[in-house]
Design a protein around this nucleic acid. Structure first.
Lengths: 205, 205
DNA sequence: GTCTATAACGCGATAGAC
DNA sequence: GTCTATCGCGTTATAGAC
């Protein structure tokens, strides 16, 4: 039985979305940890305590964004281009997508991968979502490598983790050095093709 | 003319060191951003406002630790083993030292490379120290590559940045996944030799 | 019941007077 | 070094309005 929303519930849902949207804007502007309930409330035209009708705590807002971040991230990775292309195309596409997600969603990325908030610990449910999505992405990499276009002297899992580390390092340094530049530009943002080349040169038959 | 310390100044200096030492302990324990002046004061047996005799603000404490962190980091990298060894030994030593520094000084590492504190911006002086040390480390890498044991299709600067990204990614993921395990163990902490091997396989003559 | 407001608590960093 | 006071923050309690 599909749940029918009353008008009241719809309005409520819209307010929730607005809170999350404002929260993201503020996080983008001033950093994830600087988010303040007072600012959200002011921008919504209400008093701070009224927010507690919609979220149990500030961390509950973080938690919902954390969870949605991983859902979104999973979609980006699932729908990335060149999935039936060559290994080289696939690796470039995967790394670029990862970096683009981070660059275009720096607020979510910080929340998801950098733990910048003192008291915030993801709820069990959000953590489960996060682990499932990360697992799915790991699976993509492993399957890529198992296609056997390459010769490895090390287990697939290690090869996969090396790629993940490379991708993560490039992304972190891109965001640290030129966060405003799109993927493909900047000291680190332009190095994805070179990174893929190293991997292929080392492993390709 | 070397400055002579009066006894008064010595005692004061010792208190400053103690504040910094307690701050590091607390940061290791509860995370960098969770540091509280109240706790420091309590452990020192004084009232919170009294700390302002020694530091102008909480951020001034962060700033001093940030600065010292980079000095310490520079020493680790300057004194790392195998500097007159083979390229492989050098790369492994550099990456291991970087990761070891991060693992054994997680508080400083967070402060230096992850900006986990909302309002904290390093002072100009500390920033200068930081940039100088990072520059020196970059120089080490560039010189290593210029020894010409390898053939590159890309500029030295790009090759160097690829290595830095690899090293950084492995370190971040090691700290995120098994912060308590020493370098050499754990899913990512054990991958340094494999990472170096990839680089060498791709570039070695 | 659902939303909002006001008041108040507790805690943190910080400024000023002694 | 202290004490006192301020200010901003997240949070709770409570009571009125729809």
């Amino acid at each position: 039985m599909a749940k029918q929303f009353t008008r009241r519930e719809q309005v409520r849902q819209e307010t929730i979305e607005e809170i999350l949207s404002i929260a993201r804007e503020e996080m983008q502007e001033n950093g994830v940890a600087a988010l303040s309930l007072g600012v959200i409330a002011k921008r919504l035209g209400m008093r701070t305590p009224s927010l507690y009708t919609y979220f149990d705590s500030k961390n509950a807002i973080y938690d919902e964004l954390f969870r949605r971040g991983f859902v979104e991230f999973g979609q980006w990775m699932d729908e990335r281009p060149h999935q039936d292309g060559t290994l080289q195309q696939n690796l470039q596409s995967a790394m670029s997508t990862y970096m683009r997600f981070a660059q275009e969603n720096q607020d979510l990325y910080q929340l998801m991968f950098q733990r910048p908030v003192p008291g915030f610990v993801p709820s069990e449910e959000s953590m489960a979502v996060s682990l499932a999505r990360l697992d799915s992405v790991r699976g993509q990499f492993t399957r890529l490598l198992e296609r056997e276009e390459i010769t490895l002297k090390i287990p697939y899992e290690e090869a996969r983790d090396l790629i993940i580390a490379f991708q993560h390092g490039l992304t972190e340094l891109h965001l640290a050095n030129s966060p405003e530049l799109p993927v493909g530009q900047g000291r680190f943002g332009k190095l994805i093709p070179q990174a893929v080349q190293i991997i292929l040169d080392a492993w390709k038959k």
